[in-house]
Every structure is written in structure tokens, then in C-alpha cells.
């Protein structure tokens, strides 16, 4: 355990120092942190509850569009209002969508999440007067407690705080009786049912946790990028990236999704700057992981460490 703490501390220090290396690495790392939380939130469903969501962009988009729409239509620029509002909308969306989805499991659940995310995508796309349609929404001049947050570095530290807080809270949730019950349901639905556990309620709870954290990440994403569009924050590709990151890092490991998000985000940036065929590379990575490293990076590392002891 002790050596792990040192690793975590080292990572925290490195993350803290990233802004000193320049604006682009800061921007990239900021994205990776946000996607890391999104992937972690996805894994609350996938790894801990055994439900594969291919529609988590719905929450990401709900958070992002809450920020975008409040700024566009109500000129609210205070992050201390925008952020809680995003939590509220992603919570509401998660409850409504979860109500329909959690009655299903396995592939049905997955297809429903896709279809419901597509509904919101279609609305954002078509309701041009409200959402700006394809062009999306531009976001500028946002304030935190009266102080303008404008530079990449300022946003980066905001994201970093959110990142550590989320990891801490998710860790606590997953270790709590609630989190343990989710895993019990995942491992044997029948046994959990015999134990008198209301499976649907727990699944809904898991769905809401996943949705709210993804929604918060989406809200910060909107603020950080200053620009959102349906394809970017609500598309199937966005949902799929969360899944790809989670699998790449390892869905059996708590930290796996974050590692996956970092590797994926950096790789995407480097490959697409050097080569125009990023999609091919992404596809081959996903296929390669499935075929050869099904446990993902962290799952594989953890397996080898266990084996050595």
C-alpha cells in the first residue's frame, strides 16, 4: 500500500506542475482529467454494476448544454450558479432516463442508452432557435465568485480540484454499503434478490451517480473549451470514447478508466497531429485491447503484481 501512496503523490505533484510546461499540455491534460472522471463515472455502471452504457454522452451533454443554454439565454456567467445547475439537470435527466433504462439489463440496457442519448442529440441538433443546432453554443466570459476565469491555467486548476474531489467521493461511494451492494448485484442478481435487495433501486442509484459525475465533467468541459456542439458532447462517438477509455484502462480496476482516458486523449492528440487516419488507429486499438488485453492496462498490471506476490 505504501509504495502506491508514493505513486499517487508523485502523480498529484506532476498534475499540479503541468501548467508550467506550456498551454497545450495544460489544455490536453485538462481534457484528460475531465474524460477521466467521465470514464470513471461510466465504470460505476460498467465495472461495478455490470451495465454497459453506450449513451453516457447524454449526461455529458446535459451538463454542457445546461451551461451553454443558461449563458446563451439568461446571461448567467457565474460558475457558482452554472455548475450546481448542471448537477441539477444531469440528476434530473439521470432519474428520468434511468427510470426507463434500469428495468432492462445487458444488451437491452445498452441499446436503450444509445436510443435515449440519440433523442437528446436529435433535439439539440434540430431545435436550432434554442440550441443553436449544428453550430452549437459559444461560451465566454465566465466568473467564479466575481473573478473572471479566462486562462487555460485557471480552468485547469479548477478542473484539477474537481478531479481530486470526484475521485475521493466516488471512491467513498464505491466502498460504502451502497457500492458493495452494487457489486453483489453485479455478481449474482439472483442471490441479491433472495437477500431482499431492491435491484432496480440500486441500479437507478448507480445510474444517477454515473450521470451526475458525467454531467459535472460535461459542464466543466463546456466552460473549458468555450464551445459546444451536439456532435461533440452528445454524439454516439462521445459515448463510445468513454467506453473505449474505460476498456483501454481496465474496467476491473478503480483507477483503470482514468489511466485509459489519459492514454486515449494523449494518443489521439499525437496521432491526429501526425497522421490523418486517427479513426483507423482508434479502431485497431479497441479491437487489439479486446483481443489481447481484455483486462486493460491497469487490469493487466494488477494481475501481474498479484501473480508475482
Amino acid at each position: 500500500m505504501r509504495d502506491f501512496r508514493i505513486v499517487y503523490l508523485a502523480i498529484a505533484i506532476i498534475l499540479f506542475c503541468i501548467p508550467f510546461t506550456g498551454e497545450y499540455p495544460t489544455y490536453l491534460t485538462g481534457l484528460a482529467l475531465l474524460f477521466g472522471i467521465s470514464a470513471l463515472a461510466l465504470n460505476v455502471l460498467l465495472g461495478y454494476t455490470g451495465l454497459l452504457s453506450f449513451g453516457n454522452a447524454l449526461f455529458f451533454g446535459a451538463g454542457a448544454y445546461t451551461v451553454g443554454l443558461l449563458i446563451k439565454h439568461y446571461d448567467i456567467a457565474a460558475i457558482e450558479i452554472l455548475f450546481p445547475a448542471s448537477i441539477a439537470t444531469s440528476f434530473a435527466v439521470a432519474v428520468a432516463v434511468g427510470f426507463i433504462c434500469v428495468r432492462h439489463t445487458r444488451i437491452y440496457f445498452t441499446m436503450l442508452t444509445i436510443a435515449l442519448a440519440s433523442l437528446f442529440y436529435a433535439l439539440a441538433h434540430k431545435l436550432r432557435p434554442i440550441t443553436g443546432g449544428d453550430d452549437g453554443i459559444r461560451i465566454y466570459d465566465t466568473y467564479l465568485f466575481g473573478r473572471e476565469i479566462a486562462s487555460v491555467t485557471e480552468f485547469y486548476y479548477l478542473i484539477l480540484v474537481f478531479f481530486f474531489a470526484s475521485i475521493l467521493v466516488l471512491r467513498i461511494i464505491l466502498k460504502s454499503p451502497f457500492g458493495l451492494t452494487l457489486q453483489a448485484i453485479r455478481d449474482s442478481e439472483m442471490r441479491a434478490r433472495f437477500a431482499g435487495i431492491s435491484i432496480t433501486k440500486y441500479r437507478l442509484g448507480s445510474f444517477i451517480v454515473s450521470g451526475v459525475f458525467t454531467g459535472m465533467a460535461g459542464a466543466l468541459y463546456a466552460l473549458f473549451l468555450g464551445q459546444i456542439s451536439p456532435d461533440d458532447v452528445l454524439g454516439l462517438t462521445r459515448s463510445g470514447e468513454f467506453v473505449a477509455m474505460t476498456i483501454l484502462g481496465g474496467f476491473t480496476s478503480f483507477t483503470g478508466p482514468v489511466v485509459g482516458a489519459f492514454v486515449f486523449t494523449y494518443l489521439k492528440a499525437f496521432v491526429s497531429s501526425a497522421l490523418i487516419y486517427w479513426y483507423m488507429v482508434a479502431g485497431i486499438i479497441i479491437i487489439g485491447v479486446v483481443l489481447f488485453v481484455p483486462l486493460g492496462i491497469m487490469g493487466e498490471i494488477e494481475r501481474r503484481l498479484l501473480w508475482r506476490r
Binding site: L46, G240, V243, Y279, M280, G283, I284, I286, I287, V290
Partner: peptide, 17 residues
Amino acid sequence: ELFELLLTYGMIFVFID
């Protein structure tokens, strides 16, 4: 089915390029 699904998902990107 997770892995089967992901494999077919990965193919989408291979096809795109």
C-alpha cells in the same frame, strides 16, 4: 457480450478510414 460488442464497435472506426 461486452467484448463482442466492443469488437463490432471498433470496426466502425476501421471502416470510417
